[in-house]
Amino acid sequence: MTGTTPSIPTGNRNDEIQIYDLHKSFGDLEVLKGITTTVHRGEVVCVIGPSGSGKSTLLRCVNLLEQPTQGRVFILNEEITDPDADIDRLRTTMGMVFQSFNLFPHLTALENCTIAQIRVLKKNPDEARAFAQANLDKVGLGDRGGSYPAQMSGGQQQRVAIARALSMDPEMMLFDEPTSALDPELVGDVLSVMRDLAQGGMTMMVVTHEMAFAREVADRVIFMDGGVIVEEGPPAEVIGKPTHERTRTFLKRVLDPTHVNAGDEDEAYAQRHAADSTPTA
């Protein structure tokens, strides 16, 4: 260690997610064009950017739901992009929360939170249930353990999804637009759970369109556009006084709801997300 050329991975236990020169293409479409960044222990990183800029793809490459075409990702200094990596074990260290909740509809809220504890972590069922219950309490749904997802509102489902992820006792949490599919009056409950998590010291990578949340909770904001990180830094800088024209244009659009082009973006967005919860066929 001479200090001049940092090694890959750093080996520092605080560098929980290390991303080096990450590229991802879908066919001819290059969605990520070289992303390099590190998320530190206890850090809350909010990823913002226009629809289609590759935010979800970046998050999904971190836990290998998408296979990167080039570049390396290290989780807790272990390379998840290594073909021989124990991906399933590394995934248990990061909880993921999806825009469309993806709760298991054939299981109750409590069972959603215990199944992976029992099957993957091999915990005994009583222990698993106790921890699941504690996590449901944490998200304010301690009394809904017996309910099936279909019997709950979107906001409640998303909070169960957070409890499910927490039940694996992860080192870090990945959120992909956790509030975008919710009715406006239900967004607050979910955001407040996330705020509590952040204050509790959880490492979080959050793709979001909630600028107020990013400004308040994030330690660092990453603005992405066209598959690259255009600008990153503390929210006061990136959202408060952005230096790049692209960032300014984007922020003007999301912060001013009367902007004429808002509709275009919504439509493109709706089109690309229509497939998320539809059958795979």
Partner: peptide
């Protein structure tokens, strides 16, 4: 079965 179901299961380490 929606593909999100498999993704959720895999993200839990299954």
């Amino acid at each position: 079965v929606p593909k999100g179901q498999i993704e959720a299961a895999r993200s839990l380490g299954m």
